[in-house]
């Protein structure tokens, strides 16, 4: 057995891997024909391949896929939202509308930085402060934007101060008093104003 060339075993493996050259194959074959011990070795090696390949094909256990999906990290909100949009087109449209609406309201809040107030005949203006002088009676609603309001007299209506301060000493206001300094207050005010407009429109129609 010791007399066998070393490369013979190597050729056997090359042969089994299917990448033996013609030359080596010839050498291997002539050697195997004359050497029983190498024949035995070759036989055993082929048996190994057959043995391992005899293993039955097994498949993944039931519930394998579910097991994987359960272990996946949480789906990105992007896709979840996309799927939600697909299944709720109407709500999507409504949401989009709301977003655009609120965006326009926000921008109007930011743009509207100049001082303004409801024109009433008997008001006194000092810088950015509107004063209802003592003894005077303002009839109708009063709105002051980006300025302060000081009431010394009387207001027969609602008072709204946006982005400013409301100061009253012995004030006498018949309607509601509102002070708006926050974006959300502003939004709420806009929405309420819109609702009131709609309501008055409906009322007006009904009156006719």
């Amino acid at each position: 057995m010791n007399k066998c060339p070393e490369q013979i075993v190597h050729y056997m493996h090359e042969y089994l891997d299917g990448d033996i050259s013609g030359e080596h194959e010839q050498e291997l074959k002539t050697h195997l024909a004359s050497c029983p011990s190498c024949q035995q070795h070759m036989h055993e090696l082929s048996k190994v391949a057959a043995f391992v390949q005899s293993a039955s094909h097994i498949s993944a256990p039931n519930g394998f896929v579910e097991g994987v999906t359960a272990r996946l990290p949480k789906e990105t909100s992007k896709v979840g939202m996309k799927r939600w949009f697909h299944s709720h087109p109407l709500l999507t449209a409504a949401a989009l509308f709301m977003i655009l609406m609120s965006a326009s309201l926000f921008s109007s809040f930011n743009e509207d930085q100049h001082f303004s107030f409801t024109k009433q005949p008997n008001l006194v203006v000092e810088g950015e402060k509107v004063i209802v002088p003592a003894g005077e009676i303002v009839i109708g609603d009063l709105v002051v934007k980006n300025g302060d309001l000081q009431i010394d007299g009387e207001v027969d209506g609602n008072v709204t101060v946006i982005n400013g301060q409301y100061m009253a000493s012995t004030a006498n206001v018949t309607g509601e008093i509102e002070e708006i300094n926050q974006v959300f207050d502003w939004l709420w005010y806009k929405i309420k104003a819109g609702a009131k407009d709609v309501a008055s429109l409906v009322d007006g129609k009904e009156d006719k």
């Binding site: 094909h57 994987v68 999906t69 789906e75």
Partner: peptide, 25 residues
């Protein structure tokens, strides 16, 4: 790649036997 996990479940379905077999062996 867009983040759809349902599509990945299909991939798992296709390769589960192969990969499980190798791991088991």
């Amino acid at each position: 790649l867009k983040g759809d996990q349902n599509a990945f479940a299909e991939i798992v379905e296709l390769y589960q036997d192969k990969l499980y077999r190798v791991c088991f062996r």
